[in-house]
């Protein structure tokens, strides 16, 4: 059943998965090639340029995780979940297979990044005090994508009405925050919420921090 679900997920999202694979294969190769110093002593500027490129890793992870979650339920939703709900398996098991199949495809993208990072590191001569982190980078990318995928998966799976109410509540809070800001009143709740989400120990904290393939 799981392999059938992986095939189903692949069929619905292969364009995105292939695009993500292309992006994560290109990222380490291109970033190191473009950041590589002509003057071998200019390590600081090399790291600074590489750091600038590293923003793309969490961006790709975030987009891929959210898109994969959206595509997971899209065709089920289009059929009012009738096919899924009339399959002879427990509903929690169907949701679990859906999640696992998405996670497998994300793992394939992370594996592509790992191979590309290994290749880049292997073909790049570097100073002894510089270290390469291809495995850590790929693992972090995989986990970050999985974190976004999990959160989005749960949100997208909510009933339409609940999602509407939630979206309206969030928009109302943002609008209220903007009003408070414009009127010069005290009160700031959006920044603490965002900080809590992306804090080191927050659910999306893994998107922060350093994403360096080569570092000291």
């Amino acid at each position: 059943m799981l392999s059938a679900m992986i095939r189903l997920h692949w069929k619905s999202s292969r364009a995105w998965v292939l695009a993500a694979i292309a992006a994560v294969v290109a990222l380490p190769i291109v970033s190191v090639a473009l950041a590589w110093p002509h003057d071998s002593a200019d390590v600081a500027s090399f790291l600074a340029r590489l750091d600038a490129w590293s923003l793309f890793y969490p961006a790709v992870a975030g987009v891929l995780g959210a898109v994969m979650a959206g595509l997971t339920w899209r065709s089920d939703r289009r059929g009012d979940f009738v096919y899924a709900l009339t399959l002879p398996i427990e509903r929690w098991r169907y949701v679990w297979y859906r999640f696992l199949s998405g996670a497998m495809l994300i793992a394939s993208v992370a594996a592509a990044l790992w191979l590309a990072a290994l290749l880049t590191v292997a073909t790049t001569p570097r100073a002894a005090f510089l270290h390469a982190y291809p495995t850590a980078l790929a693992a972090k990318f995989g986990l970050a994508t999985l974190a976004v995928f999990s959160a989005s998966f749960a949100l997208v799976a909510l009933p339409g009405r609940v999602r509407q109410v939630g979206a309206r509540a969030i928009l109302a809070l943002i609008a209220l925050q903007a009003l408070v800001f414009l009127l010069g009143w005290q009160g700031n709740w959006l920044v603490p919420v965002l900080e809590a989400l992306t804090d080191r120990f927050g659910p999306l904290g893994i998107l922060g921090g350093r994403w360096m393939l080569i570092d000291v």
Binding site: A4, R7, L8, V82, T86
Partner: peptide
């Protein structure tokens, strides 16, 4: 598991081919 259902409106995944849809159904 012992019930075959044909709904009023088609509910299958539209991006699958006929053979793929049958394979998916057979898996369950």
């Amino acid at each position: 598991a012992a019930t075959g259902y044909v709904p009023e409106r088609p509910h299958l995944h539209p991006f699958l081919t006929v053979a793929e849809s049958i394979d998916l159904h057979a898996a369950f």
